[in-house]
Structure formats: C-alpha cells, structure tokens
Design a protein around this nucleic acid. Structure first.
Lengths: 220, 220
DNA sequence: GTCATCATGTAAGCCGTTACATGATTGC
DNA sequence: GCAATCATGTAACGGCTTACATGATGAC
C-alpha cells in the first residue's frame, strides 16, 4: 500500500522522502501516515526495482521545469558547488536531499496497482480515489463496481451476523449502525458510477494517460 | 489484535484453535478472519506467556462443566484411550484437538488490553465492543469517550483537508461522505454513552468481573 | 551559537501472510 | 475405501514499528 502511495504521489511531481510523508499526511490525515522506517526502505526497494529514480537537485523550486538530466555525477557536482564538500559519504548519516521521480516502468507499475481488482481494503480504496484521475473513465467504473460488490457482500455478512443472535447489545447496535453506513456508501458508489457513465458516454479524455484536466481545482 | 480476539473468545468458553478461527469469522465476517499461520503461533506465544493453557479433552461436549484438571498426563491418557496410540508425536503433523482455556493471568491480560486508551483503530474498537460486557459501566464509558475524541479529531482532520483545496473531485466527494459517516458515528457514541450513564447511575453489576447477565440474548 | 525542524537512513524485533505438510473424522 | 472437512502445525518471506544515529538549515 505504501508502494501505491509513493508512486501515485511521484506521478504528480518529483519529491524527496520527507516531502512524500508530509504530503501523504496532508491528504489522508493521521490514518495515512507512513513512518520513516518504512518509507525509506520502500523507496529503496522501488529504486532497485527501477520504478523510481533519484533526480537530486538541492536547490529549491516549486514544480521546476528542469529536464532532469539523470546524471548522478552531475547532480553531485551541483550539490558540492552549493554546499561545502562532504567527507565522501560515510556509513550512515545524512547528506543532501534525494529527490525521486517516477520512471516509465514506475508509471506502468502504478497503473497495475491502480486497476487491481481487489478493492476490499478500505484504506487502499481511499488511496486509489486519491489517484483516480490517472485512470480512464472505463477503468474507474470498473473499480467502483468492484467496490460496490465488496460492500454488498460486507453488508450481507453483517446482517447475517446481526440476525443470528448471540451478540451483546453493544456489538449488535454497532453492527446495525454499520449496516446503515455501508448502505449509504453503496448509494454513494451508485451515484458516482452514474456520473461516471454519463461522462463516459459523452466522450472525455478516455485513455489512462493524461486526464489531468481538473487535477488542480479552479481555485487559487 | 489477534491476542485480544483469542483471549476474549476464550474468556467466554474453552476452545481449540480451529474453533477460535471459526467463531471469529462468525462474529466479524471476512474482515476479522485470522489465518492459521498467525493463529497457531499466536496461541503458542500466549501459552508461553502463561495467558492460556491447554486443557485438551478429545471428546465432544457443548460447554462441558468439567472441572478441568490441568493434568497434561491425564488428558493424554484419555486421548490414547479414545483413539489408538499415535507414534510418539513426530516433527510436524496433527494429533488430537488442543483445547485452550484462559488462565487468571490471561484474564488480567485481557482486561489490560480491553481498557487500553488507544481506540484509534477501527477494527480493534469493533473487537472491544464484542467483549464489552467484560468491562464495568465506568470502564465502558471511558472507552466510548476516548473513541469519541478519536472520531472528532478524525472529522476535523478530514474537514481541514476538504477545505484546503488541491483534491480531485472523487476524493473530495468521498471525504464529504466520510465526514457524514463520522458525524453519525459520533452521534451513536453519544447515545450509547448516555444509555450507559443511566445504567451506571442506577447501579448495575459494577465490577468488571461478571456481567454475563445478558451475554446470551433471551432467544433460543 | 543554539534550537527547532528538515532530512535520510539503519537495526532489532514482531507479527502477519502464503504455502506447504501431515494426519484425524465423518459421511456416503 | 474415498472425499470433504476438521485440525494442527512449520517455513520462508516480507514489511511495518520503534528506536537510534547522524547531519543540514534556518530563525532568533
């Protein structure tokens, strides 16, 4: 799940680890926080797999239009020019920021993770919605339908439990409330699916390539 | 979390591993399932810690009123009498059922886990409700209040996110729906707290020791 | 010049998942 | 006698959490 979060965030913009963590916290609140102890190893794995790649630039710039050379030696030199030389990178210890960017394979991997049919995990589904615009309308509808199935099954299960006695009053009351919630969630999905179908019939930017048109809301 | 589930189920009744898993599935549906690969090691850990203890009895009986001797040799003998001898327990492989029971320390441990102030995990909270009757009204109220705090914070976070722009339409809509859900959950907690306070003022079986009075619903 | 925050990592330990292996019980 | 289900476990692997270690930057 961290993999999806990292790749999804990087698709939008190059970032370093610390920033990724902050962004994720901003989007998902305390529930989505990633600890550094899982973030950096995850970045390392993704880099080994070729999904992300370091594009270090020490100087700050909001959404820099730099063509990112990819030259490791080059950026190191730039770093040294900006700061005094560091002692030949020791075992542990910090050095400059490491800005990561998504590779083509990384974008593919992200897409693969996004369209995965298993939408039973609540957090994972919320995360997918965060990056929903990277999908085509058809893909979106498919995911929403799968999610609907999951919730219908979950509601049925819950009702079976509630109906079969053997529960204390607290759990029973809680499950009844839970059923209502799930029903409302299903309604939300139905509405969203309907909207999406209208969009699909019309003819929106269909391919999953670039649907950024409203990525940033018309505000600010 | 598995620890809480196991101890909570065993408080009610002695059970073997397979049964624990089934019971948990019945109570919590597919979301609460525990895999065997985590269940048996967990049982082992709990046994090492002295929280549960094997009380093996091979013969079947619904809620047997046996005084459970605790004698390992004795139950093994009984097992052999019932089945033909097994080849001196090899490396892996199955043998008779191993029924576990809660020890006094296990009951203490369960209580400790139940009153833990961290109620931020949704599943964990649902699990606590499952065993809510093991707590005193005062303890219940305390937990419900803590849970309320968590949800209020969560809702605030969500509203901050929703208000600060920068979200795609899907996530925004989803978060709005989420806020409604959380508000309804808070209302549920308020109602439940009120009921519980009324109960507390009256004078119910206060101690967390035995509040089984309505553990089994008056039905069947 | 010092403190808070930014920033990157490593190490130990825990626990969960999946897959595999084994055998008992029951119904047909 | 065979299959389905009951029942218990082990092994490999992965990944997350917590705690620790280190150093850079910027504000005051």
């Amino acid at each position: 799940m961290n993999e999806l979060a990292i790749l999804g965030l990087l698709k939008d913009q190059d970032m370093h680890g610390y920033e990724l963590r902050k962004r994720l916290g901003e989007l998902g609140g305390s529930r989505a926080t990633m600890s550094f102890g899982s973030l950096y190893p995850a970045l390392g794995r993704l880099e080994s797999a070729g999904y992300v790649k370091a594009v270090t630039s020490t100087t700050r710039a909001a959404t820099p239009p730099s063509p990112m050379s990819g030259s490791l030696a080059g950026e190191l030199a730039a770093f040294r020019a900006h700061r005094r030389t560091q002692p030949a990178r020791r075992s542990g210890g910090g050095r400059g920021k490491k800005v990561y960017g998504l590779t083509d394979q990384g974008a593919e991997r992200l897409h693969e993770l996004m369209v995965d049919a298993d939408v039973s995990d609540d957090r994972d589904f919320a995360l997918r919605l965060t990056f929903f615009l990277t999908l085509s309308p058809t893909e979106r509808i498919s995911l929403l339908r799968h999610r609907r199935d999951v919730l219908v099954r979950r509601r049925d299960e819950g009702q079976q439990v509630t109906g079969s006695g053997r529960l204390n009053r607290y759990l029973r009351s809680f499950l009844e409330r839970d059923t209502e919630t799930i029903t409302a969630d299903i309604d939300w999905l139905d509405r969203t699916i309907a909207t999406e179908q209208a969009r699909d019939d019309h003819g929106e930017p269909t391919p999953g390539d670039r649907g950024d048109s409203d990525e940033r809301e018309p505000h600010r």
